[in-house]
Amino acid sequence: MKLETTLNERPGFLHALPLFDLFMLVTLLLFIGPMFLSQSGVSVEVPSSQFQMQRYRESIVVTLGPGEVEPSLHVGRQAVSLRELQEKLDALKTDEVMSRAIVLLKTDIGTTVGMERKVSEIILKSGFRLALVGRSEIPTELQDPAISPAE
């Protein structure tokens, strides 16, 4: 007994389905991919604040990590030392667009106030405007009682 197929010889729609699946997968990855990227490339835990910060067109992100003697310090994605920070800011000050920029200082919770003040004074001495960045605070009525604020 010979078995015969009842389908046409070339069922085109069956060949198109894997291509459609592949197209949807690539599209999904392109839309979701940027959500997993960190903006400055350096991860710090900033303290919460009840004030929302506006977006700035020209901004320089300085990230200050924890450390007593020599903290983790980044300008954008580039790691710098305290001594190199002044030179880097002076180099950015010569650019016409960046001379009008504001410096956004992201400070980790574990950083001492003295170190934050020292970096702030270096930034202000360079002639830039300064803004301290913090997390937005969740209103108390929206907080989950099972999660403590220290987490």
Rank of each mutant, 00 (worst) to 15 (best):
T6L: 14
R10A: 09
R10H: 12
G12Y: 15
F13S: 11
F13Q: 09
H15F: 15
D21W: 13
L25T: 14
V26K: 01
L30C: 11
G33T: 12
M35A: 15
L37Y: 13
S38D: 14
Q39T: 11
Q39Y: 12
S40M: 06
S43Y: 11
V46H: 03
S48Y: 10
S49T: 12
Q50I: 08
Q50D: 14
M53Y: 05
Y56L: 15
R57Y: 10
R57E: 15
I60M: 02
I60G: 00
V61E: 08
T63W: 09
T63S: 03
G65N: 02
G67H: 05
V69D: 15
L73Y: 05
H74E: 05
V75F: 10
G76F: 08
V80Q: 02
S81Q: 07
S81L: 09
L82T: 14
R83W: 07
L85K: 05
Q86F: 10
K88G: 02
R100C: 04
L104T: 06
K106G: 03
D108P: 00
G110K: 13
T112I: 06
T112E: 11
T112C: 03
E116D: 09
R117S: 06
V119I: 11
I122H: 02
I123K: 00
R129E: 07
L130H: 01
L130F: 03
L132H: 08
V133M: 06
V133R: 02
G134D: 02
S136G: 07
Q143S: 06
D144S: 06
E151A: 09
